[in-house]
Amino acid sequence: MTAEDEKLRKLLHQRFDSVLEEPIPARMHLRSPAWIDYARVAAIFVAGLGIGLAVPLLRPAPPKAPPAAQAQPMPALAARAHYVYTREKRHAVEVEAADQEHLVTWLSRRLDVPLKVPVLAKEGYALMGGRLLPGTDAPVAQFMYEDASQRRLTLYVVGKKHKQPVTAFRFIQEGLVNVFYWVDPECAYAISGEIDRNELARVANVVYKQLEGE
């Protein structure tokens, strides 16, 4: 590569590298291929039955429609929310941990349940803050933690109006994201991280104990 080629290369990086830092538009996320396939099957089936009214509701979304998040199980939504927001540099949280009192009051009010924020300092994770998210049947709170090497965990909490069946401690893997979750009569919880399953299990157990008051 000549010096001139190198100069051009640098110029191109200088001009376009900022795109790498831009948040990924929502329409590029959360697109569940399974959902698209099911919707297509459903559309063909319904059209076949000739139920004309139902067709517009069930046919596959046009390419630019916002991704449909319905019919996703809670831990999968938690994993996706984790994936989206932990990649944010400047806007990872809506309210920072410095305002923790306000954060907890605000989210408790919106979720209609008194929230507790687990302390994970012993596990090496510090609270960064949190945000409010829409959920399928109730508002959701997401708390984000970060360790010294900037690995992030998120705790996803669905408040009182959740319609999830009560579930003991469970694990799923959604793409790169590992998730432990459980549901009690009051809230549904999911803790997500792109870390080793055993390490996440250790942290998740601490969270579980702190939240379930053992």
Binding site: V19, L20, E22, I24, S32, P33, Y83, E174, G175
Partner: peptide
């Protein structure tokens, strides 16, 4: 099919 495998490449695809 694992869409999550593709997601990490989105920023590069967008830059290009």
């Amino acid at each position: 099919m694992d869409y999550q495998l593709i997601v990490p490449y989105i920023p590069n695809l967008r830059r290009y």
